[in-house]
Design a protein around this nucleic acid. Structure first.
Length: 242
DNA sequence: AAAAGTAGCAACCGCCAGGTG
DNA sequence: GCACCTGGCGGTTGCTACTTT
């Protein structure tokens, strides 16, 4: 007998997630925690397979995610870890709280690989690439036809400044977000549902009280609201009615 | 301005390991 | 020990936005 698929794919939706689906999944997990991914879509009213829900949560909706570009030091650390661990992205990701393995893998494939090639290093072995002729040192893309990184000044410098300003604004948002995550016991929060019913009456407030105690619950509540607001601003959920 | 090419990234697929009955 | 289920992982695909011609 062959292996059964992870879920019955007939009639299930695929492709990009809609805002409404994101909200349904978030609401469900916020209210009930995570116990069994297979049952999540059914209980949350989603036409997705559990695996897809899990991926969406882990890679995009999780409150402790650190969004934004990788810093130089993060890149260096990824390179070092990759030289030790190879393509074990989840292991590498475990060194970067708030980063996902998928994010790191994508960053590696799209940016760091090219950076290493540009430096004349083999992205797999991390050793200098063998010279094939006298000119190949500074032309790492000759072998596979991949484009080089354009480091020369470009006409779009003004646009770059604009992006940097936006990034700063985003970083402010992230720092709020990080403050929340640092003080917020996500594991307890996600697991609390074991002791609660699946009713939607279970609130974030109650979750805070049970996982952190009464004393700083107001602060936590405020932080969590900030986080929800932050996610809202990322996703433009204005049109969705809770 | 339009077509072609490229980069970035979200999402999917298939496989594997661990847990359970 | 076996069959099955679920979660997790790494590789790959496909869509979209951006850039170049």
């Amino acid at each position: 007998m062959g292996r059964q698929p992870c879920c019955d794919k007939v009639g299930l939706k695929r492709g990009p997630w809609t805002i409404e689906e994101d909200h349904k999944l978030m609401n469900f997990i916020l209210n009930n925690g995570i116990h069994c991914w297979r049952t999540v879509p059914k209980l949350a009213g989603l036409l997705r397979c559990g695996k897809s829900c899990r991926l969406r949560w882990i890679n995009y909706l999780r409150p402790d995610l650190k969004r934004g570009a990788f810093t130089e030091s993060e890149e260096d650390q990824i390179i070092q870890l990759h030289s030790r661990l190879g393509n074990r992205w989840s292991k590498i990701a475990s060194h970067f709280p708030g980063r996902t393995d998928n994010e790191i893998k994508n960053h590696w494939n799209t940016k760091i690989k090219k950076k290493l090639k540009l430096l004349g290093l083999d992205p797999v072995t991390h050793k200098p690439v063998e010279k094939t002729d006298g000119n190949s040192w500074n032309k790492p893309d000759d072998d596979d036809g991949e484009a080089t990184i354009d480091v020369s000044p470009r006409k779009g410098d003004e646009k770059l400044e604009e992006i940097q300003m936006n990034l700063e604004e985003t970083n402010d948002l992230f720092s709020n977000y990080q403050m929340l995550c640092e003080s917020f016991d996500l594991d307890s929060w996600l697991n609390q549902g074991a002791n609660t019913s699946c009713s939607s009456s279970y609130s974030i407030e109650e979750s805070n009280k049970s996982s952190m105690g009464e004393t700083n619950s107001t602060v936590q509540e405020e932080s969590l609201k900030q986080w929800v607001d932050s996610v809202d601003s990322f996703l433009s959920w204005d049109s969705f009615i809770h």
